[in-house]
């Protein structure tokens, strides 16, 4: 047992993976001496050397593109993109090469590359530092997309992602980096591509991932005052989606509210809504409702409390669902 912040849990997970497999590399801007702007790679270069923890030149396309080459050569690169909004120079390499090489080579080339992206808002940052671009990756065939929401998952999921032979976009909720939890380092972890019931309930199902998971849990607690017994599901894997627990839950509650920070149109939340509607049509007491960011650019940070789904907006959606 150890009490860890999410940042430290990721750090420990990376360390464990690097100790286990000498082919695991960490690469990115400022990941070496500085230990990353969020300190997720703190101390790794000191312990594993500059050959395994690479302070790269400042170019995201270069980071991803060279990771692809390293993977062809048999390495397992873990790339850090400093902030969500900086991934786009590397998006071409992700979509054109990283995602497709296994398919193009008919399986002869594997791409065990993890691209870590701190995502989401709520930290009062300037432009390009608070975005939730997960749908842009979930939409790309060949990529797998996951998001952790707490230190326990962070510790295990990063290790599982590194040992996966497919390219994984690994989203880390940056406003939760410093929240602590007890992590059982000897536990048997849940599989990587599995969602999980974070709180059992019977009135309505809340599904979310990453930073809003805690919001959902807080909403569930606050909802008790209104007589609601809300079930909360942490989706964890956004592509492929693991809707089993969601479907089981909706068949019991008949109501689903999907919560995410990203804009709602063509989003992961939209996909969840569509699939649940297909799979649970006969069980639905109300339409699936999304609580999300708006279809606007991420606003200046003084507006972000208006933009981000919070407890009140989640419970407002709960009310609307129950009013059907």
């Amino acid at each position: 047992m150890a009490v860890l912040t999410m940042a430290k849990a990721l750090n420990d997970g990376l360390r464990a993976a690097m100790e286990r497999d000498p082919k695991v590399l960490v690469m990115g801007e400022d990941v070496g001496k500085l230990g990353g702007v969020f300190r997720v790679t703190d101390g790794l270069q000191k312990d594993f050397g500059e050959q395994r923890v690479l302070d790269t030149p400042l170019a995201e396309s270069g980071i991803i593109g060279t990771a692809v080459g390293l993977a062809i050569r048999g390495f397992r690169p873990v790339c850090e993109i400093q902030f969500d909004g900086f991934v786009f120079p590397g998006y071409d390499q992700i979509v054109s090469q990283l995602a497709k090489l296994h398919f193009r080579s008919q399986g002869k080339v594997r791409m065990p590359v993890v691209v870590r992206i701190p995502f989401g808002g709520g930290i009062g940052a300037v432009e390009h530092h608070s975005e939730s671009p997960e749908a842009l990756f979930a939409h790309v065939a060949g990529l797998k997309v996951v998001a952790c929401s707490n230190p326990v998952d962070a510790y295990w999921m990063i290790q599982q992602a590194i040992s996966c032979d497919d390219p994984i976009i690994f989203f880390e909720p940056k406003r939760r980096y410093w929240e602590k939890a007890e992590v059982d380092l000897d536990a048997t972890p849940l599989p990587l591509f599995a969602s999980r019931v974070a709180r059992a309930g019977s009135t309505l199902t809340l599904a979310g991932y990453g930073p809003v998971l805690r919001t959902c849990l807080e909403a569930a607690t606050a909802g008790e005052a209104d007589g609601h017994d809300l079930e909360v599901i942490d989706l964890r894997t956004l592509s492929p989606l693991d809707l089993g627990p969601v479907v089981d839950s909706v068949r019991r509650t008949g109501r689903l509210v999907v919560v995410a920070e990203a804009p709602s149109e063509s989003s992961v939340a939209a996909e969840v809504a569509a699939r649940v509607q297909e799979l649970c049509f006969h069980s639905l007491e109300a339409p699936v409702i999304r609580v999300s960011g708006f279809d606007t650019p991420y606003p200046p940070s003084k507006c972000e409390e208006d933009y981000l789904p919070d407890l009140d907006r989640v419970l407002d959606a709960v009310d609307r669902s129950l009013a059907w």
């Binding site: 909706v250 019991r252 509650t253 008949g254 006969h282 409702i289 009310d319 609307r320 009013a323």
Partner: peptide, 26 residues
């Protein structure tokens, strides 16, 4: 959808707690 309506629990009491594993009628 009905928006902002009073808690629907008043109009149609829902005793969902009676059977926590009961499924919603199809």
């Amino acid at each position: 959808a009905p928006r902002g309506a009073a808690s629907p629990a008043v109009d149609h009491p829902r005793d969902v707690a009676t059977s926590p594993v009961a499924h919603v009628p199809l």
